[in-house]
């Protein structure tokens, strides 16, 4: 179970990333953020986000047209 949930369904680039960043700001190091999105571009974007910010992308899954990500705050 993640420490925080973010529903980014229906949002398009760059909103899922911006909302995730905002959510991470209120979290402490080591906590996890679970994100659900419908934007297919978010798959690559969250990989790039993790690479550039140092927050680890623990999981990236797709099911029924929805994409879910688990980020661990650095």
């Amino acid at each position: 179970m993640a420490d925080k949930e973010l529903d980014a369904r229906g949002l398009n680039c760059p909103l899922p990333i911006l909302r995730a960043k905002k959510a991470l700001n209120d979290m402490s190091s080591g906590q996890t953020l679970h994100i659900v999105a419908t934007d297919p571009g978010s798959v690559k974007d969250f990989e790039a986000f993790a690479r550039q910010t140092g927050n680890a992308l623990l999981e990236s899954n797709e099911a029924n047209g929805e994409f879910s990500f688990l980020l661990k705050k650095a």
Partner: peptide, 11 residues
């Protein structure tokens, strides 16, 4: 606006 807001989110 997309690029600068995203850049800010990336630090």
């Amino acid at each position: 606006f997309i690029l600068s807001s995203t850049a800010a989110a990336l630090g």
